[in-house]
Design a protein around this nucleic acid. Structure first.
Lengths: 342, 342
DNA sequence: GTGAAAGCGCTAACAC
DNA sequence: GTGTTAGCGCTTTCAC
């Protein structure tokens, strides 16, 4: 089956390709009668212009890349979904680049997105959350940014001065901590995350600070880094429960870990929240899937995705944009937190 | 910053663009010295060929589209993740087209993928699971298939004769049903899904058939269609529990619904599995996130994604492929199913 | 209002 | 081994 081009249309309509292009893009007035004639032929053949050819001359592709670490973690699909919604409205289609936290794969995707000439990229996870990152990895991103707009979502790249959109995780932990303190907790632990990742560290720091402000101290034994999975949460909570002196509440790096923690607690016959309060982070779908339902900090994931695309879009259109756009987290109080019972 | 092209490289290396193209694509022997010279210049400028221009002539883009209904449902990210993994290996980048079950949006994406000249598309959900679909909607897909390979994943389009990859859901329900019967259940209900969706209907049919084969009958009152969400599962289970005569076991359309069902049961003080057994479908991450852990039918989601891309890849390369590729489901027995206790 | 023609940045056939 | 050149399918200036 022959692929129809603008030339075929022009020929059949007895006009030049320029005119066809004009009706296609509505870029200059065309006599009504010829416009109709052309449109009829376009319909007849179901003609659709080749976006590649168009992009080649227009220098815009209507494609953006979304780099994220793990689409399998429910938080990211929610962000993606918010992003995709407005992307669609703005005329972009999204390459989903799932890196699995593999830095090399991240680099690969960076390179692919560049050669595909996407209009911009959303960057989430991976290297933008790592402390003491190798300068080359920063450079890679900064170099790319010279050719196309990049928005860092919930992360940062030292000295890069890239545009960032993020939810204030520090404030989020503060909310969670204060909530627990207000309930009467004085012994609060933290589980999950990885010690060389900036967002993990920041959260812990925020917890400590909030405790201090309330004249409480943090017990370092109750800080258990590990990772971000359900299994990890389960293991860490088990460790915690085997200690002589246990906290009466824990804040978890995310909902996955919190759910693992809940499982471990229940398995050990520890009641929630009577014996221990558990607070998660992200407010994913999981939070209401468990019993007891999870008290957690909402990152406004959907909103975050939406906002990120809007910012990227402005950047693409060379509009002025603040370098730093912060979204406020929200504490969602459910059933996994309560007053400590002595 | 000027964008470097193959011409700039050629000029600086005192060769023709053809030669540069040759070293870029390794498409013909080039003298080592000139190859090195060219490579040096390429590195110097971080030159990356424009994929658009390349695609325009080569008639292949290294892009594929993945249409799916809801990336927020954990089942789909798992399929996607499997797909993405091998796509990456095979050199494809994936447009994620999230349709939210909106048929019009599906059509939009179909059109976009066509004008972007993707090499092929993976189609999941939406219209390929709807009974009595309007012929125009079938035609849209069939028309597209004339210009690019399409693989239908876990679905079908009547009389379309498109290539399909799917997990045998009928066999899956059979496994689940037989499992429950073997445990001693004779009163088995079904909740979730939508009555005009083929996959929902098939599952119900399979349940009935398996019951019959075991000389049991299905009680139509225990068939509650609704949708695919946690909330839906919760509502349906509540309805079920309010009936005079209740089933001792239910099969749920997916894990979401099963989890909602678990929640409702526990809220009503109904023990699982002593008072009621609950079986889910998909074996998503959620299955092990809840207490009791969910007995469920694995669709081998990761494998499904992988296989689909492999099939699409063959189609793209004009290799022979069976029209119908079936993956076997697997019953994962956990804690939500057990013998009925009188 | 419309057409001719020059790009956009690459690949590939053909010539040498 | 390497260069010339004609596309690929569009958009966009510049004439008319």
């Amino acid at each position: 089956m022959k692929i129809i081009t603008i030339y075929d249309i022009a020929k059949e309509a007895n006009v030049s390709v320029a005119t066809v292009s004009r009706v296609l893009n509505n870029t200059a007035p065309v006599k009504d009668s010829t416009r109709e004639k052309i449109n009829r032929i376009i319909d007849k053949y179901h003609f659709q212009p080749n976006a590649l050819a168009r992009s080649l001359t227009k220098k815009e592709t209507g494609m953006i890349g979304f780099i994220l670490p793990d689409i399998t973690n429910p938080f990211f699909p929610e962000v993606f979904s918010g992003a995709e919604n407005v992307a669609r409205e703005l005329g972009y289609t999204i390459f989903l680049c799932n890196t699995l936290g593999d830095i090399q794969r991240e680099s690969e995707y960076l390179s692919i997105l560049r050669e595909k000439r996407v209009d911009g990229v959303l960057f989430m996870g991976g290297r933008i959350n790592i402390k003491n990152l190798h300068p080359d990895l920063i450079k890679e991103v900064v170099d790319l940014e010279e050719r196309m707009p990049i928005v860092l979502v919930n992360g940062d790249l030292k000295k890069s001065n890239l545009t960032r959109v993020f939810t204030d995780e520090v404030a989020g932990v503060e909310l969670a901590t204060q909530h627990l303190i207000d309930l009467g907790h004085t012994n609060i632990g933290f589980i999950g995350g990885i010690d060389y990742m900036t967002n993990s560290m920041q959260k812990v720091k925020s917890l400590k600070k909030t405790l201090e402000r309330n004249h409480l101290t943090f017990n370092d034994k109750w800080l258990l880094y590990d990772s971000f999975s359900i299994q990890s949460g389960r293991n860490m909570m088990t460790k915690l429960l085997e200690m002589d002196k246990k906290p009466t509440a824990v804040i978890c790096i995310n909902d996955f870990v919190a759910i693992g923690a809940i499982k471990s607690a229940l398995e050990h016959g520890v009641r929630i929240p009577e014996d221990i309060s558990i607070v998660g982070f992200d407010d994913t779908l999981l939070a209401t899937a468990v019993i007891p339902e999870l008290t957690t900090v909402s990152q406004q994931s959907h909103e975050l995705g939406k906002l990120s695309v809007q910012v990227l879009h402005k950047l693409i259109n060379k509009e002025k944009v603040k370098k730093l756009i912060v979204l406020s987290p929200e504490l969602i109080i459910r059933d996994s937190s309560g007053c400590p019972v002595r």
